[in-house]
Amino acid sequence: MTQMGEDSRFPGVLIHESSYVDDPVAIGPGTRIWHFSHVLGQVTVGANCTVGQNVVIGPRVAIGNGCRIQNNVSIYEGVTLEDDVFCGPSCVFTNVVNPRSFVSRKAEFAPTLVKKGASIGANATIVCGRTIGRYAFIAAGAVVTKDVADFALMAGVPARRIGWMSKAGMRLSSDLVCPLDGSRYELVSAQELRAT
């Protein structure tokens, strides 16, 4: 029977015995790494994160505190997740725009930044070189080809903004008041929303 256990390199971290964590890696306390995952070298994972089954992270990736990475996600070099990011099952990050198996483009990896509190739905694709704004919500199956504004609700192929989301993850109606917690928002422009 396999089980979760602590690794002496990472106090307070639980790592399933079927997973691998290379050196050097920094992992914050309270983080759990589940079955068949691999954390490559030069990766930083914050505190209180959950790394699901069959996840690959790295090399040279930074993940903030409180992130949730669901099953079957690969987070490649060049991707940065700020605090409290949710990555749904099988979502995809690319690292080059125009890959060819017979052309090495490792020097062309484009950085991708997912800002605090953003959520990426199952099977969504984030094309490299993009920034996902704070508390943005990427719908399942969407393909993000452009930068995404804070609080934007994105859906489709290619992804387009179809609305706004509150920090609490609720779709905002025309009054821009969160139905869950009553927080208020205001439009700064047609493409920019901010909390009041």
Rank of each mutant, 00 (worst) to 15 (best):
T2F: 06
Q3E: 10
G5K: 09
P11F: 10
H16Y: 05
S18H: 02
V21H: 07
V21E: 11
P24F: 03
V25W: 10
I27V: 11
G28K: 05
P29R: 05
R32N: 01
H35Y: 14
F36A: 05
F36P: 04
S37D: 11
S37E: 11
G41S: 14
Q42G: 07
Q42I: 00
V43K: 04
C49A: 06
Q53K: 02
Q53V: 03
N54Y: 14
V55K: 09
V55Y: 09
I57P: 00
G58A: 10
P59S: 04
R60L: 00
V61W: 06
A62V: 08
I63G: 13
I63D: 13
G64A: 04
C67M: 08
C67S: 10
I69C: 08
Q70I: 01
N71D: 15
V73C: 09
I75W: 07
I75H: 09
V79P: 11
T80N: 08
L81S: 04
E82N: 02
V85P: 08
V85H: 05
S90D: 01
S90N: 11
V92C: 10
F93V: 09
F93A: 06
V96Y: 10
V96I: 15
P99H: 13
R100H: 13
S101Q: 04
F102S: 07
K106R: 08
K106E: 13
A107H: 12
F109L: 12
A110L: 15
A110H: 03
T112H: 12
L113Q: 15
V114D: 11
V114S: 13
V114M: 12
V114L: 14
V114E: 12
S119F: 05
I120P: 12
I120W: 11
G121T: 00
A124I: 05
A124G: 09
T125P: 08
T125G: 10
T125C: 13
V127S: 07
V127H: 05
G129H: 07
G133V: 07
Y135M: 03
A136W: 08
A139K: 00
G141L: 06
V143T: 15
V143K: 12
V144A: 13
V144L: 11
T145Y: 07
D147A: 05
V148D: 05
V148Y: 05
A149V: 05
F151V: 00
L153F: 15
L153V: 14
G156W: 05
V157P: 06
V157R: 15
P158H: 06
A159N: 03
A159H: 00
R161M: 14
R161D: 07
G163H: 06
G163K: 07
M165S: 13
M165N: 15
M165G: 08
S166K: 01
S166H: 01
S166C: 06
K167C: 04
S174Y: 08
L176W: 06
P179R: 13
L180D: 12
S183F: 07
R184Q: 14
R184L: 02
R184Y: 03
E186C: 11
E186F: 09
V188R: 13
V188W: 01
S189E: 12
A190E: 15
A190D: 15
Q191I: 03
Q191K: 14
Q191C: 03
E192F: 03
